[in-house]
């Protein structure tokens, strides 16, 4: 387990982390999610030992690691821009940590072969990083980090520099890899979809503080505040409340709790239809409907409709703004 205990970190006047405490369970895949400047990368680098906290403690597997230099923490770190050793071949890159540890040659060779197989770079051993694509470089960096059998794998926006389709592939691949290898993993991302897709726990950070942590579903369904809610998905404002656009129901007739609105525009997005409405007080509101519902309502610009929450058992989606 990794425990972050009351960690504060400042860069000059800027407080990147403000009294942050967090426990990461063994074998979990945790995402640190937040906008840029929220402190998520700083938190990861403090755990890795690449930054020293101004206050607080880092405990890795029961051992106080706060003053331990990075090279003795037994962590694997993957950088956004790969940090590939450019003058070394793929094979030498992956073997680096084991060579530093002076492991026997045969053992190093076997381990490197195994890892290159796992990350799908078996045929690329003697290439240089400059001869690889971005996705291949990042897989090499992952193999390099895993070679030392780290207690914790830390990934700093690992897919941030990659094309969208490569990113989706690698994301699914990372999830499978984690299910196979079970190494405790902490991933930093600003992409809520990536966090929800890959992680089994999400920690939402904002302005150097933790806003909320929990499973993706908990965060989505019971966000602690408006920030978490709006960061985890699209939100619409209905009167005083924030609500997900797909949790709104539009009817032609007035009903309890529903507000009157005028249809401004209908956008057909295939299976979904987005209705852009204007409430009586002039505020805009986007509602997400299924195509069938939209057809049944025969919505057209200029129509007057009534919009309110879907009548769901309890309404955890509604959060005071």
């Amino acid at each position: 387990m990794i425990s972050v205990d009351g960690v504060t970190k400042e860069f000059g006047e800027f407080r990147a982390l403000d009294d942050v405490s967090l426990d990461v369970q063994d074998g979990s895949l945790t995402a640190l999610l937040g906008p840029s400047g929220s402190g998520k990368s700083t938190l990861l680098r403090v755990i890795a030992g690449l930054e020293l906290p101004d206050a607080g403690r880092i405990v890795i597997a029961g051992e106080d690691a706060t003053a331990l230099p990075a090279q003795r923490r037994g962590i694997g770190f993957v950088f956004q821009h790969y940090a590939a050793f450019k003058h070394m071949t793929v094979r030498e890159n992956v073997a680096f940590g084991l060579r530093i540890r002076k492991r026997p040659k045969a053992e190093v060779a076997a381990k490197v072969d195994e890892l290159l197989g796992i990350v799908g770079l078996g045929g690329y051993q003697s290439r240089y990083p400059s001869q690889l694509s971005g996705g291949q470089r990042q897989r090499m960096a992952l193999a390099r980090a895993l070679a030392i059998e780290p207690r914790v794998l830390l990934l700093d926006e690992p897919f941030g520099a990659l094309d969208a389709n490569v990113r989706a592939d690698l994301r699914a691949w990372l999830r499978r890899l984690h299910d196979e290898v079970h190494v405790t993993t902490v991933l930093v991302t600003h992409d809520q979809e990536e966090a929800m897709d890959v992680a089994d726990r999400i920690v939402v950070l904002n302005e150097g503080r933790i806003e909320q942590e929990g499973t993706p579903r908990e965060l989505y369904e019971r966000p602690a505040n408006g920030f978490v809610m709006s960061f985890l998905g699209p939100v619409a404002r209905l009167g005083e409340a924030l609500v997900r656009p797909h949790d709104l129901r539009v009817t032609a007739e007035p009903r309890d709790g529903a507000l009157e609105a005028m249809v401004e525009r209908i956008v057909h997005l295939g299976f979904e239809v987005r209705a852009e409405l204007q409430l009586a007080d002039g505020a805009p509101l986007a509602v997400q409907l299924t195509r069938d519902d939209a057809v049944a309502l025969e919505l057209a610009p200029g129509d007057i409709v009534w919009v309110g929450h879907t009548v769901a058992p309890a309404e955890p989606e509604t959060v005071a703004a």
């Binding site: 950088f79 530093i100 030392i148």
Partner: peptide, 21 residues
């Protein structure tokens, strides 16, 4: 200095990181 940081996380001392990276 990212390559040096990577070397550090892989167990290299600053001296080893200097010579090897």
């Amino acid at each position: 200095d990212e390559q040096e940081q990577a070397a550090a996380t892989l167990g290299a001392t600053p001296w080893q990181a200097f010579w090897r990276i």
